[in-house]
Write a protein that binds this DNA or RNA. Structure first.
Lengths: 119, 119
DNA sequence: AGTTGTAACTTGCAAGATGCAAGTCACTAC
DNA sequence: GTAGTGACTTGCATCTTGCAAGTTACAACT
């Protein structure tokens, strides 16, 4: 499911990984402490299950998250950010700044999110 | 062509505008001084004409660019960034930093681009 | 024993977006 | 009058997304 980079341009290459409407929304949730399938489903944007399954698998193969079982019988999974995934935090911060200035009606993100720094 | 925001989340709302594989690539070209249809076509990512037409119209209706004729007979157009469009520069900067660290083989952007600041 | 509930998917199908190739229109220049 | 350029437009096949419903594997309650 991984896309070939269109060029060596860092912007185009980044978009080859996160250039869709959902990946960074899931990443936002992960940065805010969510880790399970059902938790991502509960977000206000209402992602559907097939897209969520697909996006989590793509993010795993891109090295943004790791998937692991947090219990057996029945097996249940959780997703945790890798350092590579976590390092996208500044991109999300800048999107928040931009939206808060240029898109009326956007929420101010929780201070805990805006104050967070990557490792 | 403008999408309804899925929620008040600044990240989701930003992605409702620029959450695809091409919009920020065109924005990168605009920030690097390109302004004409044929100039965008010449970029290494090889966008096709129908997508470019569609994306420029969507960017115009989202207020990221303005379209104006730079000559009559025959009429030719150029696209210039609005302040709103230009203000996405920090998002692109952070993508460059991320890609240069985490995606091997990405180019180091021109210093003129990385040093640039929004108005 | 049987029903209900929960987590994490999977499947089917329709609608929309993207990619590729070719064609169009209004000119300019040779 | 032929060729070239800029900015599209059109047709069509494929890929992606969205919506609804179904599945699997259990736990827990009645």
């Amino acid at each position: 499911m991984t896309r070939e980079p269109r060029s060596g341009c860092p912007i185009a290459s980044t978009l080859d990984i996160v250039g869709d409407r959902w990946t960074l929304v899931i990443l936002r949730d992960l940065l805010n402490g969510k880790s399970r399938f059902s938790q991502f489903l509960s977000s206000p944007e209402k992602i559907t299950t097939n897209i969520l399954t697909d996006r989590l698998a793509t993010m795993e193969s891109a090295g943004l998250v790791t998937k692991s079982a947090y219990q057996e019988r029945p097996t249940r999974f959780e997703y945790t950010l890798t350092r590579k995934g976590e390092a996208l935090l500044p991109v999300l911060h800048e999107m928040c700044h931009w939206a808060n200035v240029y898109i009326p009606g956007t929420w101010t993100p929780p201070a805990s999110f805006m104050a967070r720094k990557p490792r």
